[in-house]
Simulated assay, not measured.
Amino acid sequence: MKDWTLSKILLWKTLGSKTLPSRSKNSPSRAQGFTLIELIVVILIIAVLSAIIAPGWLAFVNRQRVAKVNDGVFSAMQEAQREAKRTKRSYSVSFKTDSNNLKVAVYPEGTTTIPWKPLNEGLDIKAGQVILCSNINTTANTIVSPATCDLSSDAKKRTIQFDYQGNLAKVAGNAPDTSIGVTVAIPQSNGGTQPIEATARCVIVKTLIGSMAIEKDSTCPLP
């Protein structure tokens, strides 16, 4: 009986004295850092992906900018035509560029002070990122060829006028030309005011009754 008790005591001491083996410094489960070569490879992969994605993203952003401003042009033309019908008097919509900022005004015939307001207001578009061009003569509702992108003053503004029925108004007793319009585009990167044709969007008054259409690229009035 004593031998059996002694054996149990020895077994308990033997098992109780054992501890879990510690991990060696060279164990594969130990956390490892990145090597310099691995970091360089990752940086190169990111650079290549950025070079592939960046042009497509920039083109998308440019299209969005042009589309937003073009929607503003279309809305302004519609407002002028709608007000002409509602008030039974001639209404005009004018466009100009002031220090590369795009401006628009909708006003009735006989207005002495044109109520200009920013065309790109609330659109997060900086001055010069988008330009306006037009084939409208400064006298309104006659076509000038080639179109111009110089709308840099009140004297160079471009104006479309609708009569009390919402039709394209006559100027100086002559029937107006159709297919007059305002073009929105991204300027060329050389610092000039010439548009990039592939980015052009425009609103064109296509008929004497004032029918309007949104067009793009070479269909738009371009210099």
Rank of each mutant, 00 (worst) to 15 (best):
I143A: 11
Q165N: 13
K126W: 09
Q165F: 12
P176Y: 08
K170R: 13
N137D: 15
A127L: 04
P176M: 03
A169P: 08
I136F: 14
N167M: 03
Q161M: 13
S134R: 04
A175R: 10
G166N: 09
P146N: 08
N174I: 02
L168F: 09
A169K: 09
P146L: 09
Q161E: 14
T178Q: 11
K170Y: 06
T139I: 14
I125P: 04
N137S: 15
I160N: 01
A155M: 04
V130M: 07
D177A: 14
L132T: 00
T142K: 12
Q129V: 00
K126T: 11
I160G: 01
N137K: 15
N137T: 13
F162E: 05
Q161R: 15
I131N: 03
Y164G: 07
K170A: 11
A172H: 01
S152P: 00
A175I: 12
I125T: 09
T142Q: 14
S152G: 15
S152R: 12
T159V: 12
K157P: 06
I160V: 14
I131L: 14
C149M: 03
L151Y: 02
T178I: 15
G128P: 10
C149E: 00
A172Y: 01
C149P: 01
N141H: 12
T178N: 10
I160A: 05
F162T: 03
T148I: 05
R158Q: 05
N137Y: 12
V171F: 04
L151N: 04
T178V: 15
I125H: 03
L132A: 00
N174F: 00
G128E: 12
T142P: 00
D154E: 13
C149V: 01
T139N: 13
Q129S: 13
V130F: 10
K126A: 15
K157W: 03
D177M: 11
C133G: 15
D163P: 07
K156R: 14
R158K: 13
G166P: 06
P146Y: 08
T159N: 07
T138Y: 08
I136L: 14
L132I: 00
D154R: 07
L168V: 03
